[in-house]
């Protein structure tokens, strides 16, 4: 293809012969200031329109949210809110106690096993003791019969009801949702769960609540089948923390956040390492880019006419 390239370069030379022999300098110049007046106006208009449109869309979105009937939860300052903040494992431990003594009467957590607690909120010996408290149906044995045995680390949390129908029948037709991933499964996450747990109040004048339901402004539809589940001193914490209503709700929300996102701490640890690594790599990459482009940025293209 060398011959072809020579041909092309010769034809290019020939076409350039027709122009008067003037040096033409061409700098790589793509800045806003070098554009013509018309283009400047067009670009500015486009920018203003785009920003305005985005702002309008955001404003409309907000106003649509404000017209909903249910109350949206405020943002609470969770100790794991920060970009690099881990979960508070003391709180997870208390939250498990709350789940075990209060929530587990109606709510299952079928995707959590006892072994998941090891190294998160309890030692292995403690979890073994916890697991042995429950009875698990296992089998069949050599006679083909099922038998019960004490729980092991690998067993999942016991369910309060054998199936959803039994749960509905026992709860006035309302199904207590499984709590394994509840914080990820609800808008507002732990803010919503906290608000729901602590937000029970008298219905406003004119609102009638059916027998067996309770008024909660944070619940979609405002009528919730769950009775107010927690109150001050509902349980006694093993570490002596005063069990106020908000403390209990906060601990169980932290526990539920961990249950829904067991990789939370590892994720933030990796995020920190990613940031540290980028802090080393990005300046190097930037320097390399500048270095490679020096040739292109500082070159002049000049036409030297043949003599």
């Amino acid at each position: 293809w060398t011959a072809a390239a020579i041909c092309i370069s010769q034809s290019a030379k020939r076409s350039l012969y027709r122009y008067p022999p003037v040096f033409t300098l061409c700098f790589a110049n793509m800045s806003f200031a070098s554009l013509s007046r018309g283009k400047k106006v067009a670009l500015s208009t486009l920018g203003v329109l785009a920003a305005g449109g985005a702002g309008l869309a955001l404003a409309l979105h907000q106003s649509v949210k404000a017209s909903d009937l249910e109350l949206h939860p405020p943002s609470y300052p969770w100790s794991h809110n920060g970009l690099l903040s881990s979960l508070d494992h003391t709180s997870i431990r208390r939250g498990y106690q709350v789940y075990k003594q209060v929530c587990s009467a109606c709510h299952s957590m079928e995707y959590l096993a006892f072994r998941n607690l090891v190294g998160v909120s309890h030692t292995e010996a403690e979890v073994k003791a916890l697991a042995e408290e429950i009875e698990v149906v296992d089998g069949p044995d050599e006679k083909g019969e099922m038998f019960t045995r004490p729980g092991k680390l690998s067993d999942y949390f016991p369910k309060p009801y054998p199936n959803p129908e039994a749960a509905r029948a026992a709860n006035n037709g309302a199904l207590p949702p499984d709590l394994s991933y509840i914080v990820n499964a609800r808008h507002g996450g732990e803010d919503y769960v906290f608000s729901l747990l602590t937000g029970y109040c008298e219905p406003p004048v004119g609102v009638t609540i059916r027998e067996g339901l309770y008024y909660n402004p944070y619940f979609p539809g405002q009528a919730i089948g769950m009775a107010p589940p927690i109150y001050n001193e509902i349980l006694e914490y093993e570490d002596g923390t005063p069990a106020t209503m908000s403390q209990v709700a906060k601990d169980v929300c932290t526990f539920l956040r961990w249950a829904a996102e067991p990789e939370h701490d590892q994720r933030k640890r990796m995020g920190l390492k990613l940031l540290l690594g980028s802090a080393i790599l990005l300046p190097l990459v930037y320097y390399m880019k500048r270095h490679r482009w020096t040739v292109l940025k500082s070159r002049k293209i000049a036409y030297r006419p043949p003599k």
Binding site: S79, L84, S85, S86, L87, D88, H89, T90, R93, G119, V120, S121, D265, K268, R269, L272, K273, L276
Partner: peptide, 17 residues
Amino acid sequence: GNAVFEQLNRGKLWKHI
């Protein structure tokens, strides 16, 4: 990286309690 993370979250991780 681990040291920085554990310093940022002192007292909250299982390691510390």
